[in-house]
């Protein structure tokens, strides 16, 4: 027998269940007075640098129905491509931009909505630029392990073509599942859990 590696195992995931909003967005769930505000409800203030954008979308199941009990979180760089994180080593991010948002979705439709800014360019592991993108994390009843994906921008065609992550998608017909659609002044990004339009999810 060789020596033991003695590493610990990551705590296994369990579904967020139907009542994730009690814990993560209690004010939205009607539980008032415990927290002043729901965490992640607001990402920007009037001093935040960068182009203001709004992203809306739905999480859609294998029957084409929008989930009404999902919780969606996003994480992104500021307009200079810096993350508001103690593990950002390249500089200090815009202190007026949190980089992280959380949406419980509309009560009736389940549609999520984020008011944020367009992120700057962040380098890939080998130093090449990645096209501007926003990381999404989706949990809900019936999802056993939170799903990671990314949203890219439709007007960044050249950068998207050169993006090292999009370049890793084997079936090119699936790349559009990672690119938002322009919807007036807003972006629309629907996330399909299954089916022909299934979004590319990441094992990262």
């Amino acid at each position: 027998m060789p020596q033991s590696l003695n590493y610990l195992k990551e705590t296994p995931s369990q579904t967020a269940g139907p009542y994730v909003h009690i814990g993560c967005t209690p004010n939205f769930a009607g539980i008032k007075g415990v927290y002043e505000q729901d965490l992640g409800a607001s990402m920007v203030n009037d001093k935040t640098k960068g182009e203001r954008i709004t992203i809306r979308g739905s999480v859609i199941d294998g029957n084409g129905m929008a989930l009404k009990d999902a919780l969606v979180e996003i994480w992104q760089a500021d307009s200079d491509g810096l993350y508001n994180s103690p593990f950002e080593t390249r500089g200090t991010a815009d202190p007026n931009f949190s980089g992280w948002g959380r949406s419980a979705g509309e009560m009736d439709t389940g549609e999520f909505c984020f008011h944020t800014i367009k992120p700057g360019v962040v380098p890939f592991t080998d130093g090449r630029p990645m096209a501007p993108h926003i990381t999404f994390w989706i949990v809900a009843r019936g999802i056993n392990l939170g799903l990671h994906t990314r949203m890219y921008f439709p007007e960044e065609n050249t950068a998207n073509q050169a993006d090292p992550v999009l370049g890793r998608v084997e079936h090119k017909s699936r790349v559009p599942t990672l690119i938002a659609q322009k919807d007036g002044n807003d972006y629309r990004f629907d996330i399909h859990l299954q089916g022909e339009l299934e979004t590319v999810f990441f094992d990262i």
Partner: peptide, 9 residues
């Protein structure tokens, strides 16, 4: 990438 190595703290 940095997009996953960083996160809100």
């Amino acid at each position: 990438t940095l997009s996953e190595m960083t996160g809100p703290v």
